[in-house]
Nucleic acid binder design. Structure first.
Lengths: 329, 329
DNA sequence: GCTCCTCCTTGGAGCGTTCCAAAAACTGCT
DNA sequence: AGCAGTTTTTGGAACGCTCCAAGGAGGAGC
């Protein structure tokens, strides 16, 4: 099925059919109608490779995945991919996956560009000093990142979760219930997202005039270490705990159980991520849900700007997580 | 960067460079060497769209995702996508995502075929009577499914987790520890995977001469219902419980806690899926881990056969889950 | 030195689309 | 009806690659 065949059926020239699809305003209404009917009848769809060859645009968005990272990589990747793929689809783009082992990451991006296998990229799992942003920016390749580089010198568009807004909202919610001893159970300083979430807690506490001294603890790991860190908060008399992740919140649950206390009834606990685990705990864990769907949509929106040649300074979008209240409060 | 430019540099004809890449055995060693050097020096990579146009093959593998399904859709999708994308990459293929809402699913597959946006498909989330397999088979489109249709009339290749082998292994493991009252906590009859897992438990029990009467319960939902179902097993004196999923196993944990009993010490509990939640529970839940990575590799292996025109009857691969023993046993 | 044969290399054509410039069909006005 | 100006339609060329059939180089045999 080609343009030529549609053209024959509609009794017009090849180019006229092409125009009917790409620039319908050029056709006389009755011609357009005739061509459209032929397209429908034949169920014609343009051949993507031919379009790509001629227009030098693949209409594909590259998404590099780091093999071996396995299930720990990013628990939300799944949903994020759904979201960007869905949003891209609506704009006529598709997401193509490629493997990008960390040691030859940039080479793989280069390869995709060389073979014109993608017009743009979506990055995720960005961490402090990720080289990809600067590299892509220098090459003038459109891209958007889910996550900041935390260097303060971001050169491209990004969308991220406003961790600070999330923890701050949790603080305010807990304070409105009468809590004054609200602790923060986080990771060691140095990680961008971790520090951000801690900051939100800290600022909201100060804004409310609540004491922060000895109310912040750091856990180097998820299970045992988190339990010990939570112990310190509880020893200090905290009546509520906000954790930087659901996994850390589980540590707090353990610490409470060991003391014969019950999350929710005795001490309020709030996690972060709203992972599937949250509803499986008892009592169900309240958590800050990341609006991943919205992140994906925003990423694609920003990317489409670039793909359409819109000139504007780098845009940064922060989306606030939503506190999902369950019985742990 | 085109073939022509590489040819100019190597002092040969365009076609010779193409041969150097696609049929190196046709070239005299010294010519090949010369061409290879030119390719390296210029960092040449064939333009995928041009290749696709000429060879009528996009070297893309389509993966349809059902939008809106969200995080519940498939907890393992993430890892699976990594695996197939990685394996495909090694064979020069890439995975392209497209949205396929359930109500117009086949149309979307058709669309991709019409625009030659993919040469083959990987299906997942197949359930009883999934129409996609038969449809693709009729059209002669290469595909492979992660999961059976459970109709007994599968027309194409598939790879699946051997649920029965998993639960059977769990039964044998528990029996070897001296358990005789081993219960099965499953879903209502009618789901392919659920019945399969129940069957493995049933057959292994009988093979070991252990009683199955009143040892199988069904839970229509995850949390409350699962706890009640587990209660019935415990009332019946079961000393070990094998659950059809980690979520159900959590129900069993609840039932035990309510009775003041401890999983592992008092009653052994085994889940299925080895989800991230398993390690976050206390005590850490033993579970049957699905070899998703291997499933992905096998899927791609089968698919490549078809893409390379290998003629053979449909092949079905069953991969056994691995029992990950933690403190809940 | 010539022919014949084999092995290697080459130019032309075409995949299906869009760009471009030119032709054709209209329109309104004399 | 004829003309200029505008709108609509058209055919040729090109994107970068691989297929195909034909050309050239080199070696064996006379």
């Amino acid at each position: 099925m080609t343009l030529e065949m549609v053209a024959a059926r509609a009794g017009v020239a090849r180019q006229t059919v092409s125009n009917a699809i790409n620039a319908p305003e050029l056709l006389r209404p009755q011609t357009l109608e005739r061509v459209r009917r032929a397209i429908d009848e034949l169920n014609y769809r343009p051949h993507r490779a031919a379009q790509a060859l001629r227009t030098r645009a693949s209409r594909l968005i590259g998404y590099g995945i780091r093999p071996g990272a396995g299930r720990v990589a990013s628990p939300v990747l799944d949903e994020f991919l759904h979201a960007i793929s869905d949003a891209a689809d609506r704009a006529g783009y598709r997401v193509v996956l490629f493997s990008a082992p960390q040691d030859e990451e940039l080479d793989r991006y280069q390869q995709l560009l060389d073979e014109q296998g993608a017009d743009a990229f979506v990055l995720s799992g960005t961490d402090r000093g990720d080289p990809r942003q600067a590299w892509l920016h220098k090459k003038g390749v459109p891209f958007v990142a889910f996550g900041r580089t935390w260097t303060g010198r971001d050169v491209g568009d990004w969308v991220d979760i406003d961790g600070a807004a999330g923890t701050a909202a949790a603080v305010r919610h807990l304070a409105s219930l009468g809590h004054r001893g609200i602790g923060f159970l986080g990771w060691p300083r140095g990680s961008g997202a971790g520090d951000d979430r801690a900051r939100g807690w800290h600022e909201a506490m100060r804004a409310l005039g609540l004491p922060v001294r000895n109310r912040r603890v750091e856990s180097p790991g998820d299970l045992g270490p988190a339990t010990e860190a939570a112990d310190r908060l509880l020893d200090g008399g905290a009546t509520a705990v906000i954790a930087a992740s659901d996994a850390l919140a589980v540590g707090c649950y353990q610490a409470l159980h060991r003391r014969g206390r019950t999350p929710g009834r005795d001490v309020a606990v709030v996690g972060f991520d709203d992972s599937p685990t949250a509803t499986m705990l008892w009592p169900p864990l309240s958590s800050l849900a990341q609006p991943i769907e919205a992140v994906g949509r925003e990423c694609v929106r920003l990317l489409l700007d670039r793909l359409n040649g819109v000139e504007r300074p780098a845009e940064h979008v922060l989306l606030a997580p939503e506190l999902v209240v369950r019985d742990s409060i």
